[in-house]
């Protein structure tokens, strides 16, 4: 049976979609496509840690933004040690940007989702593994996201004390030099605007 003419419009995103960092992300995108929920892949990057000089040390790019729902989704099917690092980043993100709505999908959540849809073999395959299909994506852009420079500056002040305490323990692999965002999705107007701001200020 064909799709009904009066059914909600489809927002197919995966056909010409981004290169996902993890197979679970590709699967999640397919699920969203299936249920016709519009999504963007890593459209926004949020600075979360600076050093005393104000240099950006760490950013966080949630995997998905669902614009119709104003919701960010971060998937993690990683090993527990890496989950802890991601949890720490998420805590920082929530402290600095409390108005963000973000949902973290742990391995168990993803597994339950796969079970619901009869894709348990995929969940089992990914469980406890890195599962990356491209290199680490912890590197992030210099600035992005829907927040203006004032907000970011205010957040930087808050972060100074934390960065002073945390900087000696930072893992250089987790804090590479800032790079340009590499997988911006279609229609990411908010991200493009923020990126322009970043470039102008650079």
């Amino acid at each position: 049976m064909d799709q009904r003419d009066d059914a909600p419009d489809a927002q197919r995103s995966t056909d010409a979609g981004p290169a996902f960092a993890h197979v679970s992300e590709a699967e999640f995108a397919r699920i969203l496509d299936y249920y016709q929920v519009r999504w963007e892949y890593e459209p926004h990057t949020f600075p979360i840690l600076w050093n005393m000089s104000g240099d950006l040390l760490e950013s966080f790019s949630p995997d998905f933004f669902l614009p119709e729902l104003d919701l960010y989704v971060e998937l993690t099917t990683l090993r527990q040690k890496l989950v802890r690092k991601k949890n720490r980043k998420l805590r920082r993100l929530r402290e600095l940007y409390p108005e963000l709505r973000i949902k973290l999908f742990y391995a168990r959540d993803f597994r339950a989702l796969m079970l619901k849809y009869g894709r348990l073999e995929l969940a089992e395959e990914l469980s406890g593994t890195a599962g990356h299909v491209t290199p680490s994506r912890s590197a992030a852009s210099m600035l992005a996201g829907p927040f203006g420079a004032d907000r970011i500056a205010a957040a930087a002040v808050q972060a100074d004390l934390a960065s002073a305490a945390l900087a000696p323990a930072l893992d250089p692999l987790e804090h590479p030099a800032p790079v340009h965002h590499r997988r911006r999705r279609r229609g990411a107007a908010r991200s493009a605007t923020a990126a322009e701001r970043a470039r102008a200020g650079a």
Binding site: M1, D2, Q3, R4, R12, D33, Y34, Q36
Partner: peptide
Amino acid sequence: SGLVRILKD
């Protein structure tokens, strides 16, 4: 199809 469908309307 890759899209949710109405199987019975």
